[in-house]
């Protein structure tokens, strides 16, 4: 992982095809996601955007009957080689889900969960864990609100805090990429704003790829945007360009709300 070719792309796919059983969900997807930016995947339901997102840390394969062909390079390395460790891959590529999914343990334990499972028993110092918790929670601006109740159950938090905690949970593992699958669709407008502000503040340090139904959100947070339809990437451009001067008529129709 150490000597990575200095590429401007964190994620590169080439002719990626994916089948669920006999249903083809992705068709010849070739897309490059820029390093350190927020990129958005938009498109109507069932267009394959979540499927594509789930390819990047190979979580798709946890469910049976998925066949993948083509190439995905994360940080310049092909992740479908046999010597790829899913554990190491997922440390580098974290994921945030549609519904906040804090584990049913304390806030503190949620944040250090990753550290604990990646170190042998008894090697972690409490001070190191405490520092990691403070650093991660500060990064997602939860520290001031929660520092006095780190040992309450994470599932008792408000949804916005839960979602921020789910982001914080990834940070101690020092991920390069954070994938977000409609991270605000379960939240109200105010909480959505909070998450979006957080994403903007994290941009630059992490490469972020967000799947969203909400076109306005894509415009607000992303620098680049890819429009998908029926398993294909129709258009991939700078967000302003995609929304103001789409090249493809299908993109224009979607943006203007003629379908989807």
């Amino acid at each position: 992982m150490s000597t990575v070719a200095p590429s401007i792309f964190s994620i590169e796919t080439k002719d990626l095809n994916l089948w669920y059983g006999s249903f083809q969900a992705l068709k010849n997807v070739s897309v490059n996601i820029r390093h350190g930016q927020i990129s958005a995947l938009i498109g109507p339901s069932g267009c394959g955007k979540t499927t594509l997102l789930r390819c990047f840390n190979r979580i798709n394969e946890s469910y049976g009957y998925v066949t993948t062909k083509g190439e995905i390079k994360i940080l310049g390395q092909n992740i479908y080689t046999p010597d790829t460790s899913l554990i190491e891959l997922r440390k580098a590529v974290g994921m945030v889900f549609q519904r906040p999914n804090p584990l049913p343990i304390s806030i503190y334990e949620n944040v250090v969960f990753g550290l604990r499972i990646h170190s042998s028993y008894g090697t972690l110092k409490k001070s190191k864990l405490d520092d990691a918790v403070e650093k991660a929670l500060r990064e997602v601006s939860l520290w001031d609100g929660l520092k006095d109740r780190l040992h309450t159950r994470a599932t008792t938090l408000q949804l916005e805090q839960q979602q921020k905690l789910c982001i914080a949970r990834l940070l101690p593992l020092k991920p390069e990429i954070i994938l977000m699958d409609e991270p605000c669709s379960a939240l109200d407008t105010e909480a959505t704003l909070g998450i979006e502000e957080l994403m903007l503040s994290l941009a630059g340090r992490y490469t972020m790829l967000i799947v969203t139904h909400n076109m306005a959100q894509a415009r607000r947070v992303s620098q680049e945007c890819a429009f998908m339809l029926l398993g294909e990437v129709v258009e991939h451009a700078r967000t302003e360009d995609l929304f103001l001067t789409p090249r493809e008529p299908r993109t224009a129709d979607y943006i203007e709300g003629r379908y989807g």
Binding site: I59, S62, L86, I87
Partner: peptide, 10 residues
């Protein structure tokens, strides 16, 4: 969702 949360931190 709990399992996915775990798998996704490796």
């Amino acid at each position: 969702a709990f399992r996915e949360a775990c798998w996704n931190v490796g």
